[in-house]
Nucleic acid binder design. Structure first.
Length: 474
RNA sequence: GGCCCCAUCGUCUAAUGGUUAGGACGCUGCCCUUUCAAGGCGGAAAUCCGGGUUCGAUUCCCGGUAGGGUCACCA
């Protein structure tokens, strides 16, 4: 049975790169009828952020990615790691190291100065186990390191990249247990992936160089090695690793800005993968069906917000008035211009701006003119090919005509038809009448069309706004 | 710097040992149009460089170069 996992560290919010990793793991598990596990890699107490786990879970839930098991927290599994590392010590695959941080720092510096590869020099590697045990007993500060083989090669087959090989002599004796008793990532990840029966490890490319350490650990324990797939990194527009400095990186940022989860997920799924067809829109369900990890790209992918914006617009366009009003509610609530009583009007009005906004957060501002007529200069009422005199003549006539519409007939279709006939009959140009009408109703240079606004506003409000315009222009 | 990954329009990518190198975003022209959007129809825009294999290379191989990752008692 396929089992995958997403294993973030709770250092804040869910990164969009993390979202993609979680998504791919989820998709792969689901398309194989397997399980997706959430594990929290919280073995670094210094970087622990209060609420970090909750934030990650919330962002995953918002994105529609459901995990089947977990969250398992590594900080609550210390005994398991210790049990395993003891085995390694017993079997001479790991050893106590008493080197101080200062010594290691000096060592590194010297290696750098001499331009030789940095890494632990193995000073404690050959301390007699008995002596080491005694020093530990005596309370001497120590870490536990793995005994990396000094010769040979470690080879593995990446699902995305094919065969990758590393010379063992160049791989460090990785610390397994820190002096505070917590395991490092490298020990914990191997032990947990095995304990949790993970069959496929899908994670970011930044991990690829630590794979040989992990493989040696699997070998020491005599465990089967999971399949691995290392995903290309997400990049800034300048091709550097995606960072906060150059824009938003957390799922939460995008949620707050008014991106739809469907859009973010669809967009992120296409960063490093695509179906090989012209199909651009994929629901989570469709992704489960069509995703193929072996077709994932190998080169880093720029996180291009323009494309995300396009996806978001497209997904917003698919929403009904009701859905859009509902989903945008938080942004209306956050805007003090709007009160709860507006709810019904909001639902009627959202259609006006649906095709004009990029994110949900723009909606309250875009629709404000429906609720409060903006102040505008009278010149705005004059169409570029018209003049004040003409507007002053047409607008009152138009108001008179509109007044003849019954409230029942006050809808887009009827208005358009009626005004159209009237225009033809009078011989007025369309722009000369419709531009001022639209400005009168919206108070804005750019807005939705006059008929749709009129319908949303209703007869009384529409005529009131027309009267205001007439007063301005005469 | 060592090691590792990697390279198709500006961006995300598709495809093939022989193609007009396809799509999408963005940009742009035209149409529609009272404005802004939306929509329709077009356009510009790419195989990093050098060798080799081959009748033929963008594709396969080697080298270079660019970019990225990693080299912690962080993940």
């Amino acid at each position: 049975m396929v089992r995958t996992r997403f294993a973030p560290s709770p250092t804040g919010f869910l990164h969009v790169g993390g979202l993609r990793t979680a998504l791919y793991n989820y998709l792969f598990a689901k398309q194989n009828g397997g399980k997706f596990v959430l594990r929290i890699e919280d073995t670094d107490r210094e970087r622990y952020v209060e609420g970090g786990v909750e934030n990650i879970i919330k962002s995953l839930a918002w994105s529609g990615i459901k995990f089947d098991e977990g969250p398992f927290e590594q900080s609550k599994r210390l005994d398991i790691y210790h049990r395993h590392v003891e085995q390694l010590i017993k079997e001479d695959h790991a050893y106590y190291c008493f080197c101080s941080a200062e010594r290691l720092e000096n060592l590194r510096q010297k290696q750098k100065d001499k331009k030789i590869p940095t890494g632990y020099d193995g000073l404690c590697r050959d301390i007699d186990p008995k002596e080491a045990g005694q020093r530990v007993q005596a309370g001497e500060r120590h870490v536990i390191r793995m005994k990396m083989p000094v010769s040979g090669e470690t080879v593995f087959n990446d699902l995305i990249r094919g065969e990758v090989r590393f010379k063992n002599e160049l791989v460090d004796d990785q610390v397994l247990i820190k002096s505070d008793g917590y395991p490092t990532y490298h020990l914990a990840v191997v032990v947990d992936d095995h304990e949790m029966k993970i069959t496929h490890i899908i994670r970011g490319e930044e991990w690829i160089s630590s794979v040989p350490k992990h493989i040696q650990l699997y070998n020491f324990f005599g465990w089967d090695i999971p399949q691995m797939a290392h995903l290309p990194l997400l990049l800034n527009p300048d091709k550097s690793k995606l960072s906060k400095r150059q824009g938003d990186v957390s799922v939460e940022d995008y949620r707050q800005k008014g991106y739809l989860p469907e859009a973010l997920v669809n967009f992120v799924a296409f960063l490093g993968w695509n179906p090989g067809t012209d199909k651009e829109f994929f629901s989570l369900k469709e992704l489960v069906k069509e995703f193929d990890i072996t077709k994932a790209g190998r080169a880093g992918a720029v996180f291009n917000v323009d494309k995300l914006d396009w996806y978001n617009k497209e997904y917003i366009k698919k929403l009904s008035d009701k859905e859009l009003a509902k989903i945008a509610e938080p942004w209306f609530n956050a805007n003090k211009e709007y009160s709860i009583e507006n709810k019904e009007l909001i639902e009627r009005a959202v259609g006006l701006e649906r095709e004009r906004i990029t994110t949900l957060s723009e909606l309250p501002g875009a629709l404000k003119f429906v609720f409060v007529l903006p102040d505008y200069p009278s010149d705005l009422l004059v169409w570029k090919k018209s003049n004040r005199q003409e507007v002053a003549k047409i607008l009152p006539e138009l108001a008179k005509l509109l007044n003849t519409f019954s409230v029942q007939a006050w809808n887009m279709g009827k208005l358009e038809q009626g005004i159209g006939e009237w225009l033809a009959e009078k011989g007025y140009s369309v722009g000369a009448a419709l531009w001022p009408m639209r400005v009168a109703l919206s108070g804005q240079q750019n807005s939705p069309g006059p008929f749709e606004i009129a319908e949303v506003l209703g007869k009384a409000e529409s005529l009131a706004r027309l009267d205001k315009a007439i007063a301005k222009i005469i």
